[in-house]
Design a protein around this nucleic acid. Structure first.
Lengths: 217, 217, 217, 217
DNA sequence: GATGAATGAGCCTTCATTCAT
DNA sequence: GATGAATGAAGGCTCATTCAT
């Protein structure tokens, strides 16, 4: 029973280190990419010794994975939350947009790191890692929203997963464009721009189906 | 005059090697990314010795750059051609879609490699290399098409560069989705899907013209 | 104030390594020459890992240069000291002989390494490095002693730089002969042999030149 | 019997190649040193293909060795000739000086290559090769001249091999100084300078020793 | 427990040597 | 016989990981 508090203390300290390391790592990974990033740099930036880093994470790859998964989990939770609470597909999409943009604004390094990966929305990421599974999960949740929207005639009749991927990259392009442009626009402008784009890209054109199709050709 | 044919032969052989190496390299780079790709692997896949590889390319980095630039140049030429010959913004966009899809279908590994980079449409690509400049050029050409379309009231009134980036990733997502799905759809289906998506995403919604246009200007 | 000792300790350890590596390297370089010497060998001989070697010296070339320069600096200091303190050219030469022999006896591997270079007293050493400049400096200092001796009618009327080079190789031959012969003679014998040789080779023969020649014998 | 002429022709052609390659090699070795010299360069300079080079010499090392031995043999022959024909030690030394200087003036690249080795007069040259043996032979022949001179009271009473080595480096320094200075002095000046130096360095000083000293002056 | 110096496996690149033409 | 393109073993250097303090 005496060991309990000590164990707790250890765990608490470990968690503090964990977050601290992840933040440093994200910045390094964002700036150099996985391979070019040196654990030494992470250690320096975090102000922790190599030993401490390796006491918390078994390997460089694990740090990377952890970052991807941890943030991914948060995004996933966000998507799940939206999927659970928002009945209307349009409202759900709108909520996702707000949620994602807020999240990325809060974690710009992770955004850059994520953008660097590029393959996120591609098929088979190099490692058969759980990060891919996670991302698939996010895409699936989004796809589900699209599926419901398609069924209701709100969204265009395309493969929901395809729409889901399109949605994700739109999100990413918007933000990467924002990063590239010096992060000048404010949150609401970003949200509106993405809302507009999504509205256009995914909404079934008025009167489409049957008749008006002739006009769109 | 006797030396001429020999020199030509050498050059011809060198070009064959060059293409052969680039193809092998693109596959390796596509699968592992630049850093994790080992020249040894490229050499094995190409069925050529290290020495031969290094007789054609001075370094691993040069192979990478060459691939990016060579293909990039072709894509750029394509975009320039479209920009020059197609007067109407809508026709130009349509021609780009056909051109890109045909090109990527012919070079799937390069597509994957390109997708891996991810940063193409992001701000500051890792190296201050000409590849970035090239990509910027492509984006600028596309942006010009959008600018003309916006001026004519055909496309939505958004930053043309932003639209240009969106267009590029849509292209890439479509194709990466196609790769992920086992390359089942045929060319025309792909083109139509992308045409539809672009039409929706970039065309000024019917009725949005006229009145509100004044405000947005 | 706490960091001071740690920093000092690091520096001290680094210096120990530095000397240790240089000693091992000198032996390897002495035995194989620069190109044929493998860093691996140095590492093995020093009992240090590659990483440690490269933590102290940035490159193989730097190890070589460091050795040449470090010892060269000591020799240069010796020559400068002699040039400064000894008024009479003959005493100066004598002091140089003692100094050099003592120095080389203390650093036989460096002697062999230096002998290998061979070009020390030749025109254009391979690298346009400071080592050449250093050696030139030593030769110039010696030449100055000869110049003064020539002016006083003590030394033969030849190009001082030529005499300086001759003097240097005599030194080297004596010692290399001593190394080749198993290092049997003691310090004083070596010094006497070189003194005698230098006396004969450089002193103005009796009766040559004017009057005072007689006194110089 | 038909094969004989063909065999002879082959041998003759081979000899022409051999000399041609050696000359090119000497220049390359002189300029870059053994390790840094590339067989490719030798091939280019000689205007012969790699295959031809390797048809004549089994390896790069063999080219080097051949050059050293071939020229060394000529020098050895020269020394042997002098040793055989010149009775008086002083005349012999004088003849050697003329012979060496003429030889080196005729083969400046070999001189530079030889100077680069540096170890000629050092103890144990890296390879236990015949070149060392050869050089030892030259040194021994010279030593014999000195021995005779010492016995006659003409030369100073020092180890003849030591004197022989000293003589060799003096030769080399003189020539390397000449090379360094832009090869301005003419043959006779060089010979006189070396004669003077040798006379001073090796001759028994007047009045040293008893009787014969008078004669030696 | 924390440190950071030490380790050494692994990669890019070169060049002596070979062999198909 | 001559060619020179192709080969691949080997070496300099880096950096993820460990362990003595």
């Amino acid at each position: 029973m005496r060991r309990q508090p000590r164990e707790e203390a250890r765990r608490a300290r470990n968690d503090v280190y964990r977050q601290h390391i992840l933040e440093a790592a994200e910045r390094i990974f964002a700036e150099h990419g996985f391979e070019a990033a040196k654990v030494q740099h992470i250690s320096k930036l975090a102000g922790l010794s190599m030993g401490t880093i390796y006491a918390v994470f078994p390997s460089k790859t694990d740090i990377f994975r952890a970052s991807l998964e941890e943030r991914g989990r948060e995004l996933l939770a966000l998507a799940e939350d939206v999927a659970r609470t928002k009945a209307g597909p349009r409202e759900a999409l709108s909520a996702l947009i707000e949620g994602y943009i807020d999240y990325f604004l809060a974690h710009p390094n992770w955004l850059r790191m994520h953008l660097r990966l590029g393959t996120s929305w591609a098929a088979r990421p190099s490692g058969t890692d759980s990060r891919a599974a996670q991302w698939c999960h996010v895409l699936a949740l989004q796809a589900d929203i699209f599926r419901r929207g398609i069924a209701k005639g709100i969204f265009v009749d395309e493969d929901p997963l395809y729409l889901s991927k399109m949605f994700s990259v739109m999100d990413q392009v918007l933000l990467s464009d924002w990063v590239a442009g010096g992060m000048k626009e404010d949150r609401d402008t970003l949200i509106r721009r993405l809302q507009d784009m999504a509205e256009r890209a995914f909404s079934r054109p008025a009167g489409s189906g049957r008749v008006s199709a002739a006009r769109s050709a």
